[in-house]
Structures are given as structure tokens and as C-alpha cells.
Amino acid sequence: MAPRSCVLCEKSKAILKRPKTGQQICKECFFYVFETEVHNTITQSKLFSPGDRVAIGASGGKDSTVLAYVLKTLNERYKYGLNLFLLSIDEGITGYRDDSLETVKRNQQQYDMPLKILSYDELYGWTMDAIVSQVGRKNNCTFCGVFRRQALDRGAAMLNVDHIVTGHNADDIAETVLMNIMRGDIARLGRCTYAYFKKLDYFSTECIYSPDAYRGHARTFLKDLEAARPSAIIDIIHSGEAFEVSEEVKSTQKAQQTCKRCGYMSSNDLCKACTLLEGLERGMASSGITDRARKKMEAEGPAPDNLRTIPFFRLPSGQPAVAIESPS
């Protein structure tokens, strides 16, 4: 079969077929549509204002690297007037994060952006390696997920940024829509669309040996759907944007409050990170996971006064609270 020419420029040879539109296009046109679609999302959804400080959640993976590149390119091309920063979280997993942090440091040089690396050790006094040595391999994802989410927000507060952007792509969003329905996570379902535009929903997609079998099933399923009909990913996102949780159900949900210990947003008196950290510190790590263990810890009395806690959370205002590594 003769090579097909690009349906957009009708000149160059098409090298890929876009699942979203079914169109076969060339490399140059792919770059054009990719960048312009990101630009359209930013402008049409009014994500930023001139002068905004924006942190790019950088893991060193392809998605966040592409995001950093595209955002820098668009910021210069369309004169958004944004101050861009790279924000990386170091979970403290020996032999796992080291390489990717090196990538992020290279990005800092290449894209000429200030970088802040915030570690679990610095924030919580625990590395993931230390947590695993206490809790074992089964429930450690709970700790990692909760700690990462809060670390990103705290990193953003330290950098005094107005927005965090993460490199979640359409597959991640579609997977989240399905997962939230299958797990009945009403609170997240409402946030999903918001996350699509604001890119503020965080979960790890990197830990390939994660025992979260459920998410693994969902991911395989999604890939099968995409193979059956490539538009499935975008069709699921369309579905996710078309519905919302009814007002009746929303009114029964817990109101958001602030954690009495660390000031971070929470649905209970203590936020999830403080609950988990207290369990770790008191040597009863499963208290943040099962009701039975929580009751057992409560029976042993209140938290001791000398308990190590997370520094008090303050929303960004004024000057950055930390020194930022600037590209040399």
C-alpha cells in the first residue's frame, strides 16, 4: 500500500493515526495539533493569569517531561507571562527514585527552570523504605499515596505558587473515571473533571509492582477498550464530564474542614496523613488502615505530647518559604 499523506497538510507522509480523531497525520502536524490543543485548553478554560506562579509536578517520567517542555514552549510562544517551577517529590525508595530525580535535574538545566525537591523524610521524618520496613509490603501504597498528595500541596505552598500542574494524560483521566465508579468514590468523581482541566488529581502510575490489583485490572481493561475502538479513551472522558454527583447525595457528604493538628484540608478532625503518621510514630502503623487497629490505638490513650508531627500547613501567600535550586 502506498504511504498515505497527512490529512492536515496534505504534503508530508503520515506517520501516526490519532485515536481521538482517527486522522492520519505527519510528525510536524502532530506537534502542531498537540501543542495547540494544550494551548486551547489553557486559554479556553482560563487556567492562568499573567504573572501567575506555576509548579510543574515533575517525576522524571515522559508525561511530566513533555508537560514541562510544552508549558515552557507555550509560555514563550504565546507570552502567558507565567513563572514556571519544577516540583519533585522524593519518596525515599532506594534504587527507584534516584534515576528519575536525575532526569528532573537535567530538565532543570535544559528548560532553565528553578527546581524544588521535597522529600518524605524532610516533611514527615519517614522515607518509604523506613515505612515499608515497619508496615510490610501490603499496605504501603496507602502511605505513599496520601503522603505524596499532601507533599505536592505543601511543596506548592513552599514555592508560593498559584497552581500545580501535573502530567496526567487522557488515559489516566479515563482510568480514574472508571476506577471511581467501580470503587464508589463519589467525592473523587466530582473532582475528576476539575482535575482534567486543573490537573490536580494525584496518584502514582509508576510503581509497576504495586499490589493494587484492582487498578491493574482497570488499566488492562482500558487498553482492551482502546484496541477495540480507539476513541474509547476520549469517549470515557466525555462521559465523565457529562455527569456529576446529585445535590441530594452531595448534601450527605462530610463537609471539608482543616486538620486540627497540621492545618491541612481534611474530612475529619485529623487529616489522613496525620493519622497515618501517628500510627507510624507509635508503632501501630495499621491504625490508619483498619478500624480495629484504630480502636486499639485509641484505647491506649491520646497521642503523647512529644509526638513528631507534620509542620503546620499554610496556604501560599507572600514570599516563597524555601530556598529554590536555580539552574546554574
Binding site: 518509604m128 523504605d129 510503581c207 490489583a213
Partner: peptide, 18 residues
């Protein structure tokens, strides 16, 4: 890349959800 913190279900039966 293998993680130190998360179990490998193929090699380690303890890593599976019960």
C-alpha cells in the same frame, strides 16, 4: 523497574491481596 517498597506478586506470594 522493580521497586523495593512494593511487593512483586509473581515472586512473592505475600504481596498478593488476600
Amino acid at each position: 523497574m522493580a521497586s523495593e517498597s512494593c511487593g512483586n506478586p509473581t515472586a512473592d506470594t505475600d504481596a498478593r491481596m488476600i
